[in-house]
């Protein structure tokens, strides 16, 4: 029963990953992240992703604040935030988020406030999607790890 569950879990995870790849939400950088996970850091992926979400949340808040400021003009700061966001997103393989960041940065460099707003909307949307999916994925991973750790009591 447990073994069967583990297989199905693995299949689900693969399916989800395939979907995310197919949608362009993730790219191969995420795979590299998975490859980095080894005995010395069994939770590496989830750890990094958690950090990423925490950081991104901050960044999104900052961006939102910057943009909603009535006499906003600090596009440079926005660019720095976006660079940061781009860096971390690309590092975990969040491809679509990164792409939106690129568009966002382009808009901010043109001092295109409307464009920035739109990009921010899109960014938040993409981010939420990524977050949900990755959570789903990580949960499955967690289950899998737990399942792998569980053993039937040895029957005599």
């Amino acid at each position: 029963m447990l073994g069967f569950g583990a297989d199905r879990l693995r299949a689900d995870m693969n399916r989800l990953l395939a979907l995310l790849f197919h949608q362009g939400v993730l790219d191969e950088q995420f795979l590299q992240l998975q490859q980095l996970q080894d005995e010395t850091s069994p939770n590496f992926v989830s750890e990094v992703v958690t950090i990423y979400f925490r950081e991104s949340e901050k960044l999104l808040t900052n961006l939102r604040e910057l943009l909603s400021d009535r006499d906003f003009s600090d596009y440079k700061k926005m660019g720095i935030h976006l660079n940061h966001f781009m860096g971390s997103s690309s590092s975990i393989g969040a491809k679509r988020v990164k792409n939106v960041c690129v568009a966002f940065r382009a808009a901010s460099e043109q001092n295109n406030r409307l464009g920035c707003f739109r990009a921010l909307e899109l960014l938040e949307h993409e981010y939420c999607y990524l977050k949900n999916k990755l959570h789903e994925f990580l949960q499955m991973e967690q289950q899998r790890i737990m399942g792998a750790g569980a053993r039937y009591p040895i029957q005599n």
Partner: peptide, 16 residues
């Protein structure tokens, strides 16, 4: 790096 995500990943990679 001020980006802790990257920092963490880099650290791990470099350890590798």
């Amino acid at each position: 790096d001020d980006d802790t995500t990257c920092l963490r990943i880099l650290e791990h990679m470099l350890r590798k």
